[in-house]
């Protein structure tokens, strides 16, 4: 009986050793990276976000209770001086339309951030199987979201999701051009990357493209993020 107990005890230990060694810890699904290498070096990669479908709804948000033009998965913080910051959560797609990660857009106005009437925005692109990219730019106009009280509570509105915003255009290059005194063409900068993107620097541009205006005054479209990076540039 004593021997049987000892063997069982050792079997239990062995199970733990095997589980610790071979337990299938989480890994992230990876899609083939769609990177273009220009003739003069570097790497170009395009990312796509579809609105409104790629917005990540937060718990407790009921899309049906919100106005058609309201944005889900977003928040606004405004101080007493009217200086504002807004945050948006998205799924991130590659050029083949696969959801490969998540993206967040934070934009802010006022004070030390940007000229009056404009905003500066940050993109955080996280592709779990590859790493993250940190992007920053000055916008051509104020692209922060606004919070408006409604009968069902406050609703957040994104400029690109309202039909009136597209009255005179189908596309908008959101990234402002750099001042002529600088050596760069665009204000869109890839500040840093992690994991596979570690050591990469470069530039990017953000473009909003309208696809459809619905009868209710809401819109559908795409946010196009075009990145150009190179090691240590």
């Amino acid at each position: 009986m004593k021997r049987l107990f000892s063997i069982s005890f050792l079997a239990g230990l062995l199970v733990v050793v095997l589980a610790t060694t071979f337990w299938p810890l989480p890994t992230h699904l990876r899609y083939r990276s769609l990177i273009t290498v220009p003739p003069d070096g570097g790497r170009q990669e395009e990312f796509v976000i579809r609105w409104p479908e790629d917005r990540i709804r937060l718990p407790g948000e009921d899309r049906a209770a919100l106005p058609a033009t309201a944005a889900v998965g977003a928040a606004v913080l405004e101080d007493s001086a009217g200086q504002r910051a807004s945050a948006e959560l998205f799924r991130l797609r590659d050029a083949d339309d696969n959801v490969i990660g998540v993206a967040t857009r934070l934009a802010g106005t006022g004070g030390a951030i940007a000229d009056p009437g404009r905003s500066a925005s940050n993109w955080l692109l996280v592709i779990p199987s590859r790493g993250a990219l940190f992007l920053a730019q000055t916008d051509v106009q104020d692209t922060t979201l606004t919070e408006v009280p409604t009968a069902d509570g406050p609703a957040v509105f994104a400029p690109e999701q309202t039909a009136a915003f597209w009255a005179e255009r189908q596309r908008l290059l959101v990234t402002a051009n750099a001042p002529a005194t600088t050596s760069s063409v665009t204000t869109g900068r890839v500040l840093r990357g992690t994991s596979e993107f570690e050591g990469l620097r470069g530039s990017f541009s953000e473009t909003w493209a309208l696809d459809e205006v619905s009868a209710g005054g809401s819109t559908q479209g795409r946010i196009l993020l075009s990145t150009f990076t190179a090691a240590g540039s």
Partner: peptide, 30 residues
């Protein structure tokens, strides 16, 4: 944004996430 770290190892006492933050102070910076 937190993503389960693929480098986690039970033998090395690593069970964690890679975390990414973006923080914005209205009127201040980020």
């Amino acid at each position: 944004v937190s993503a389960a770290a693929e480098s986690n190892s039970l033998w090395r006492a690593q069970l964690g996430t890679n975390d990414y933050w973006n923080i914005y102070w209205p009127g201040g910076g980020s």
